[in-house]
Simulated scan of single mutants.
Amino acid sequence: MGGLLSEIGKKLAERWFSLLVLPGALYLAVLATAHALGHTHPFDPARLADRIGAWARTPVVGDAGGQAVVLAAVLAGAGAAGLAAQALGALAERLWLAADWRAWPLPLRRAAELRVRRRRDRWETAAHHYDRQREEAARALALGRWSDPADRHAAHRGMASVSVERPDRPTWCGDRIQAVAVRLDRQYRLDLAAVWPHLWLILPDAPRAEITAARESLTRATALAAWSLLYLPVAVLWWPAALISAALAVSSRARTRAATDTYATLLEAAVRLHGTDLADQLGIDRTGPLTKELGTELTRHLRTDPPAMSARTPHQSGRVAGVREP
């Protein structure tokens, strides 16, 4: 037992160091560089070396006690910066996925609603173009003619660049996750929100590990957006920090889209491959693969119905027993 706890503690320390301390230490190093060089000498290594040497010669770091205090301060500052980035990253992820955008504060909700309408208009235009390309290809096939699929594939990429399904959220990443639920409901009449928690509990180790890794990759990608925000104020002292902020923002957008697509693909694949295993666990009679009938049965078994008004207690219905309302 002691060995297991020791191993767990070691892994937690490694994650804390790699996810919080190292990026935070890099941030503090850039902040120190900004303070040392400023706008007038943004790329002067000699000036930076002189400043670092002067700081190293201060009496505070002249003995072992002072050096320990400085090291502890650096670690604490790096950890604090890392925690701030994690908090901002969680907020960025919530905005990027926008699962609850209809419950956002009114100004944000209005802006999100406007963006959803604009994305729907763009998607419908692209979808109509794709449908025309498919119809032309079908007519050519019926007449025995060969048609170049390049235009059809380009039209499909144009539609998917907006959203893989009809937009319902203000962001591409949010719609990519939502598309999993839309597709499973359309093809199998399966409610992903009701089925997924139960399916997750019976998944084999290999798909669970893949999905967990994809989810962690998504979290790390959104954390880059947080770091880009933290580096932006440093540009007030040292303008190259604005370039670092921009590079992190661009990288975060690309990595977040890729991680979201991978995560959504794995979610959908897990349901398609292991939905029948869940039916077996629930004792539902079936033959063959996942179908609309089986998806409907799984949803019926696992969806929780809201309580009826007549079944609520007096306290739940807003009344207190023995007290008459005016």
Rank of each mutant, 00 (worst) to 15 (best):
5 L>Y: 05
7 E>N: 09
8 I>K: 09
8 I>P: 02
8 I>F: 07
9 G>V: 12
13 A>H: 14
14 E>F: 06
16 W>L: 07
16 W>D: 12
19 L>T: 14
21 V>A: 02
21 V>E: 07
23 P>W: 00
27 Y>K: 06
27 Y>C: 03
27 Y>Q: 04
33 T>D: 03
33 T>R: 13
35 H>S: 12
40 T>P: 00
43 F>I: 14
46 A>K: 12
48 L>N: 01
48 L>F: 09
49 A>I: 06
49 A>Q: 11
52 I>Y: 11
54 A>T: 14
54 A>L: 11
55 W>M: 06
56 A>K: 13
57 R>W: 11
57 R>L: 15
59 P>A: 08
59 P>E: 03
60 V>N: 03
62 G>I: 00
63 D>F: 07
65 G>P: 02
67 Q>G: 11
69 V>F: 10
69 V>D: 08
71 L>H: 05
72 A>G: 07
72 A>E: 06
72 A>V: 05
73 A>R: 06
74 V>C: 02
75 L>V: 14
75 L>Q: 07
75 L>E: 02
77 G>T: 01
77 G>C: 03
77 G>S: 09
82 G>A: 01
83 L>T: 02
83 L>D: 06
83 L>N: 04
83 L>Y: 12
86 Q>T: 13
89 G>P: 02
92 A>Q: 08
94 R>C: 05
95 L>E: 09
95 L>Y: 02
96 W>I: 11
96 W>R: 12
102 R>D: 11
103 A>N: 06
105 P>M: 01
110 R>H: 11
112 A>M: 10
115 R>C: 04
115 R>G: 05
116 V>F: 00
122 R>A: 15
125 T>Q: 13
126 A>I: 04
128 H>L: 13
128 H>Y: 09
132 R>P: 01
134 R>P: 01
145 R>Y: 11
147 S>A: 15
147 S>G: 08
150 A>M: 08
151 D>P: 03
151 D>A: 15
153 H>F: 13
155 A>D: 00
157 R>G: 09
157 R>W: 14
159 M>K: 08
160 A>I: 04
160 A>D: 14
163 S>F: 03
166 R>S: 04
167 P>M: 10
170 P>M: 07
173 C>S: 15
173 C>I: 03
173 C>E: 15
177 I>T: 06
179 A>L: 01
189 R>C: 07
190 L>E: 00
191 D>C: 03
195 V>W: 00
198 H>Y: 13
199 L>R: 07
199 L>P: 00
201 L>V: 11
202 I>T: 08
206 A>H: 10
208 R>A: 09
210 E>R: 15
214 A>Q: 04
221 A>L: 05
224 L>R: 04
234 V>L: 14
236 V>R: 14
237 L>Y: 09
237 L>P: 01
238 W>F: 09
238 W>T: 04
240 P>S: 10
241 A>R: 02
254 A>L: 15
255 R>W: 05
257 R>V: 11
262 T>Y: 01
265 T>L: 13
266 L>H: 08
267 L>Y: 02
269 A>C: 04
270 A>M: 06
272 R>D: 05
277 D>V: 10
279 A>P: 02
280 D>P: 02
280 D>Y: 05
281 Q>Y: 10
283 G>A: 10
284 I>Q: 03
291 T>Y: 02
291 T>K: 01
291 T>V: 05
293 E>M: 04
301 H>I: 03
311 A>T: 14
312 R>P: 01
316 Q>W: 12
318 G>C: 07
320 V>H: 07
323 V>I: 12
324 R>S: 13
